[in-house]
Design a protein around this nucleic acid. Sequence first.
DNA 1: GATACACCTG
DNA 2: CAGGTGTATC
Length: 814
Amino acid sequence: MPDHDSDSLLNRQTKRRRVDIGVKRTVGSTASAAAATPDNIARAKAAIFSAMNSLSSHSHHGSDNDSMECSVVQPHGGPGVVSASDSESKSNVLRKLLKRANSYEDAMMPFPGTTIISQLLKNNIAKNGGGPERGERGDRGDRVETGFPGSGLSNASSDAPQEDACSNSSQDSTPQECLSPFGRPPGLAAFDIERLNDEHLRAKRARVENIIRGMSHSPSVVVPAASRHERDHDMDGEREMELDCPPPQSQHQAPGSPRGGEVCGGSRENKRKQRLPQQQQQSFTQLVCQRKEQKQEERRQLKLQLEDMQKQLRQLQEKFFQIYDSTDDSEHNDLHNDLGNMSEDSPVRSDTGGDDRGGDDLRSDNEMSDLDPGHFLDRARALLHEQAMLADREKPRRDGLGRGKAGPGSSMHAEGKQLAETLKQELNSAMTQVVDTVVKVFAKPPRPTPQQAFPPLSLPPERFPPAVNGDNPNFHTANQRLQCFGDVIIPNPLDSFPSMPGLPGPTNDQTEALPLVVRKTPSEHHHQSSAVGAHGSNHHPALHPSSLSASMGFSPPSFRHPFPLPLMGYPFQTPLGAPTGGYPGKDRTSPDSMDLPRETTSLRTKMASGHHLGHHHRSCSPAHPGSTAESLSLSLIKSECSDLQDMSDISPYSGSNIQEGLSPNHLKKAKLMFFYTRYPSSNMLKMFFSDVKFNRCITSQLIKWFSNFREFYYIQMEKFARNALLEGVADVRDLTVDRESELFRALNVHYNKANDFQVRREHWESLKINTLFGKKIINNSSFIKMCLRSRGPELSLRYFYMCSRVGHNRIMCT
DNA sequence: GATACACCTG
DNA sequence: CAGGTGTATC
């Protein structure tokens, strides 16, 4: 704390420790201060959270579901848990937490608090293997995890830590959740559907496997069921990490910083992130490749589906034929009459009677080959041919004779023709339906495969090429992306969300937010620091790959979607729900009509009026929203653009409508983006806001927005933590977040006021978040992702998991 | 000096 | 959310 003396530091901390703690510039400083500050409950809480975060950070794996819990912190060396009942223990805990916090501020991970943390870490460890706080964070980098050997966790230690975890989780959830990537075509029989599902599942599995292979991050994977067991392992691992790693000297690493070994090494990167761009580029490239793969996969699936449908069609035809045949046999002609009526207009129709033969033949054929579709057509052709011949032959006679003559034979003949006609019509209609169905299915965003894992989150910078929705509001269809956000969402947490730039490499997970600015090219800025800068070094550049990256990471191949999202598991619908289709309503409407929050409105107004933001904005011009682009943007948002892809998708259309200013919709998008990255890099911002002409003002404004978002977000988290402490919560496992919770409400109001995102019950309750973080943000709605993501190790909840349990969700820190 | 961030205030 | 300030980094 170079700058601040302890007092000031304390004050400051007291006031605001929230947010920046993690990032803070002061990093190494305050160790001294850290020591005591008892009074700060908040701090303690923060510490707790951080601990929790730490834990959570690594844990991805998780079990998914339910059981994730985090272990709690335990005060003393031993991982003992603090007994809630004992006030003293609480005090100790708080103290430790405080210490930790302080140390944190120092930027180091305090060992003091270590015990607790370590225990927490242990629990979680596995997942990321990430180191402890900073270190932990560093983790995000992925490598970090690797660095930690010890994690006892089962797998965690392994190299593929996060990935594995992701994959595992993905697998777990995927199958079930994403059952039908394709919507079920109308008309398909149940058995067909089942068949399709089976195939689909197989395909998903294959995709998941691919994804897993592709991922290299996450170390731990745990099986949900074993969550607890795993947790233990994780903890061990984490602890080891902690021990192994020297405390960071000065700052924590920035959230995305790469770290792994680094972390352990204690080296932190004070420097700002420099290379993000490259990393991001790689990530993008990977994403693109993944997308292609996904598309191919989609094609394959569609083909399979088409084949199934064709089979079904054939079966239907056969059945029809059989029925007809039976009727014929019975000699009654209700059916015939009907057919005759139907085919009256048919050219082929003939009045002449035919012989029975046709009927008999058909019958026999049917008998012979009930199930052979091919016969159906053959018979139809033969019948037609026969009828034609008869018609020619009898026509003259018929003219002379009159119809009365037609006996049974002629009626049969007529019936044959009618049958032929009917069959033709049926075939045509059936084919038409099949084709339509296929087209529709194809057009719809398929649910992605599981991987989505979400999404979350990061976006691909580039956006995948996928089709974007430029025109089609319903980007789902247009894009065909699956939204899977597994979270569906919007999956596409996502997964993938986006961090475009940040995409992490394969391994990156960015659990943390990326630095806001990354100077893209060296040429442009010599600074490399994109990130956080100063104090912050904490932010680790490496980290960037926040969730977005994670998502990207995941998205692998399996998805067809462009996004990575996380989609894992959710079925077709987007998290958003119904509105998928068009984003009606306000989305489409002009900004004015939008139901934006007041602030937004005011912002818009200001902007519209040419308001210039302070010095930041000197050059900014007013925004000109309204355009289609915005609508699209909203649409995207609704669809949970969370996914990187979504983000990326924006660009296409945006290109045509580049605005010089930021509109309310952009603000909305920024909020959405915040779910994925708390510290977006400049590249990410550019990608995400491809429809905006960037200049210093815009960049500054965006940075400011994110700064504000962080502030709010961390305040909420801190508040939540504080309340929890006051309530006597000693164990993270006791923390719960449900829809009624203040945290949920606050976040939703702030970031989702217009309910652009529908946090559906299923998303909330059955999140399989294991993989959520970082890399795997797989499923769950963006909202949840957002909730999970927190900024710094310290206070942030980023590592929290919200799990659903029977009636409620828990926040886990893994 | 420029930049980015945290923090604080309105 | 914006404006301002202080700090750290480049």
